[in-house]
């Protein structure tokens, strides 16, 4: 085919360049369709907004985990960072009687852990798995220390951050949580950054072939550091919003969140080996995970079975990922 399609005649770009994205979109629609038909109470507006709300924390973190995976790294510390940020934000807000300071503290502490992760991985060249495993433990410990081992109750002002926006709809109204709005905003922002910014393309180049990126003059270390800092900041923000919604800073919150986030990304088709990923992949992956979770809740499937099912889905996803990269 190369001979006649040579050179300059404006080439047509295939509509769906990555078949797997199309396939994941189809899977996503199928899963949601099945849920609508077979699960009572799934196809309602109330359920949709509720589902988005439960997905919002995972959704926010998927945005930055996408960058992390695209650059060929991992961040396992996010679950602990979410808890730590929540506890810190509530404590500071209570002590200083200032919601703004509390938010800054939560987001800031997330950013600091990200900075630590990024510096160690990028500049000291320590394996990200080990590094973030260590900070995962350390951040969890810090969360307990900050809250003195207990959950901390948030002030009413602080809890307002966990409220929702009411939009008139027909006779009633639908309420969309602020954290859902934040998730949507982050999806758009990080999608644009990944696909259209110098930074985003550098991240993909780095994950695709670090040596080639370095030789082309891309600041590899700085880029990698930035990815971890962003991840930390977003985890901090997610922690603040979660604490506001639950009206408590809970040091036990979100254990295992990192695995849910990575599962959602990989399920959507973000390559674990780096270099390949798109915001749509993340959206499909998230929606599939969210739908399955919601359907299981509505069907009152026991928590033990839920573990089994989500675990199986992740395993299936990585096998598919391997299969896809082998095909390529």
């Amino acid at each position: 085919m190369s001979s006649e399609t040579a050179t300059c005649s404006a080439p047509k770009r295939p509509k769906f360049r990555h078949l797997e994205q199309l396939s994941m979109a189809i899977v996503c629609v199928l899963v949601m369709g099945c849920a609508c038909i077979f699960v009572d109470g799934f196809a309602t507006i109330g359920n949709a907004t509720g589902m988005l709300l439960t997905m919002s924390i995972v959704g926010m973190l998927c945005c930055t985990m996408l960058f992390c995976l695209a650059s060929g790294d991992f961040d396992l510390s996010i679950g602990s960072v979410v808890a730590l940020a929540g506890v810190s934000a509530v404590c500071v807000a209570n002590a200083q009687n200032s919601v703004a300071l509390g938010v800054c503290a939560g987001v800031g502490v997330g950013g600091l852990i990200g900075l630590l992760n990024g510096s160690v991985v990028a500049y000291l060249k320590i394996n990200p798995l080990i590094t973030t495993l260590a900070t995962m433990q350390a951040a969890r410990g810090l969360a307990y220390i900050a809250g003195d081992g207990k959950t901390v109750t948030a002030s009413e002002d602080f809890a307002k951050l966990g409220g929702s926006l009411s939009i008139p709809w027909g006779s009633g109204h639908i309420s969309i949580g602020y954290s859902v709005l934040v998730m949507l905003a982050l999806l758009v922002i990080f999608g644009v950054v990944l696909h259209y910014s110098v930074f985003g393309r550098s991240v993909l180049a780095l994950g695709g072939n670090e040596e080639a990126a370095r030789l082309a003059g891309i600041p590899v270390k700085r880029t990698r550091l930035m990815v971890f800092v962003l991840q930390g900041l977003v985890a901090g923000l997610a922690g603040v919003l979660l604490a506001a919604r639950l009206q408590t800073g809970d040091p036990k919150a979100e254990v295992g969140l990192e695995l849910k986030v990575i599962s959602a990304c990989v399920l959507g088709g973000v390559a674990l080996t780096g270099g390949r990923g798109s915001i749509f992949a993340v959206i499909w992956g998230m929606l599939i995970m969210g739908t399955v979770q919601r359907a299981m809740d509505l069907q009152q499937i026991g928590i033990y079975w839920q573990f089994l099912i989500t675990g199986s889905i992740l395993l299936a996803a990585v096998i598919i990922d391997r299969f896809k990269s082998k095909l390529g």
Binding site: E211, A212, I218
Partner: peptide, 23 residues
């Protein structure tokens, strides 16, 4: 190993280095 990003597009590879110029 050092020149191309194998799974990236031709265009992506061509502009890998000139990124900071074409903004």
């Amino acid at each position: 190993a050092e020149g191309i990003i194998p799974i990236a597009s031709v265009q992506e590879n061509m502009h890998l280095a000139s990124r900071w110029r074409l903004k």
